[in-house]
Amino acid sequence: MLIYGIPEFRLPKTIVQNELDILKKMGVKVEMNFVVGRTRKLNDLIEKDGFSAVFVGTGAGLPKFMNIPGENLVGVFSANEYLTRANLMKAYDTGRAHTPLYHSKKVAVLGGGNVAMDAARMALRLGAEEVHLVYRRTEKEMPARVEEVGHAREEGVIFHMLQNAVRILGDANDCVTQMECLRYELGEPDASGRRSPVPLAGSEFLMEVDTVIVAIGNGSNPLISQTTAGLQVNRWGNIIVDENGKTSIDGIYAGGDIVLGAATVILAMGEGRRAASSINASLAGT
C-alpha cells in the first residue's frame, strides 16, 4: 500500500525502498508474484514447505462502492484503482508507460479520509481542471488528518460538505456526464459517536463531472480466510488474533489492516513487531 496506494508526494518511495533494503540486508528473502492462498495454500507453507510460523499482513481488501445507480459507468473508479494506475503503473508517464490514462476535466471524489484527499490531489496533478470533494458530514467529522485537508484545500480542491451522491448519469457510451447529489444536515450521534447525516427531502441537484472517484473505504480481503480452513475471522472478515497477534491456528499470526480494518502504517508496524516477538518467544520454547 505504501508503494501503490499512498502517492509519491506524500510518501517518497525512496523511504520505503530504504526500509526494504534494510530488511533484505538482514536476510529476509522476498518472494514476489506469490499470492498466498492461490499460488500456495497457507497451510502448505507450514505443513509441506517447512516454515515454523507465518505472519499474515495482507492489508485491507475489496474497495467499497456506494451501491448507487450508475456506479459501473466508464469514468467511475475506486480510489485504489485510480491511485494504483497513477502510482504503480505510472500511467501519468504517457511517453513510456503502457497503462492508459483516463483524461479527466471535472472530477468528483466521494469520501472524507486520507485516501480521498490523496485521490483528489492526485487528480489535480494528473491535469484535472476542477476537483470536487463531496462528503456527507462536515469537515469536523472528516476522518482525514487535519494537515491533509489543509493541503488539499491549499492546492485548490473544492470542498462540498453535507452532500452526497445518489446517482451517476452517463451518455450513450456509458461515460460519466453528471452526478446527482442530495444535501444533508447533521442529526443524532450514531454508533461511531459522530453525528449522522440526515438527507434533506427535495434537495436533489446535479453536478457536472466526467470522473467520479469513490473513496469510502475497503472491506477485508477474503482470499486467505477463504482458502485456509479453521482460520477465524469476525463478521467483517477481519482475522481474529489474541494479544500476541496469534490467530486461531497454531503457528499463524496476523496484524495490520487485515486485523484492524483500514487503519494506519504505524499501527500496522507495531502489530508486526509484537507478533514477531511472540513468534520468537514461541519458537524458542519460552
Binding site: G61, P63, F65, E71, N72, F77, N80, E81, T84
Partner: peptide, 21 residues
Amino acid sequence: MIDGTGMCGGCRVTVGGKTQF
C-alpha cells in the same frame, strides 16, 4: 484488470443487478 486480487475494483461488472469483481 489491474491487480487481479480484489484490490482495485477495476474489473467489476454488473451481474443480476449487483456489482461483482
